[in-house]
Amino acid sequence: MFEAIAFYLFAFLTISMFYIAVTTQQALYALSAIAAGMLFISAFFFILGADFLGAVQIIVYSGAVMALYAFGMMFFDTTREVKEKHGNSMIVLGLSVLVAFLVVVIFAVPLVSGNITALYPIVEGAGNTQEVGMVLFTKYLVPFEVAAIMLLVAMVAGIVLAGKKMDLSLTLMNEAQIRDMRDEENKKVLS
């Protein structure tokens, strides 16, 4: 009974938070509602007994949404309302109801037909964290490593794009060129 109460409570809270995030015109409300919604989603993991995933959900999304806040801070005055252009709201409503219906159907059909089985059943005696590790480093090892490489690529790209004078290489320049470059910089500082 407690699980049912908790499920419906958090389902209601999550949906209402994301509803606020979509409908409000105040950037700060939208961001805070997203943060709260992401936190409430972690409750479902805890209800299902997947403690590790629940905690990871909190850590990852609280950090990710924090980055969104930083963008919000850089781009708007977050204490003012954002004026949005509204098209025909009926189309938006119709499409979102249709999509929601489709998503429910996609997940409900295997349940109804009853042929859903766990490909990787729970290992007896292993804790939550260990089970995640077992699946991650056997079945899903390749996607896991590919994701790591993609993150590495993104990090290098970010550093190259943000760094200054990244097109120059000190190892390929001789002493005189480097001295000229330093002099140039010093001139700029003095002038």
């Binding site: 943060a35 936190l39 403690d51 590790f52 629940g54 905690a55 990871v56 909190i58 850590i59 609280s62 950090g63 924090m66 804790g127 939550n128 964290t129």
Partner: peptide, 17 residues
């Protein structure tokens, strides 16, 4: 809970909100 440390770190992080 068996992930106590992760939970504490996560919630303390949320505290900075």
């Amino acid at each position: 809970i068996n992930i106590g440390i992760l939970y504490i770190l996560g919630i303390m992080g949320v505290g900075l909100y």
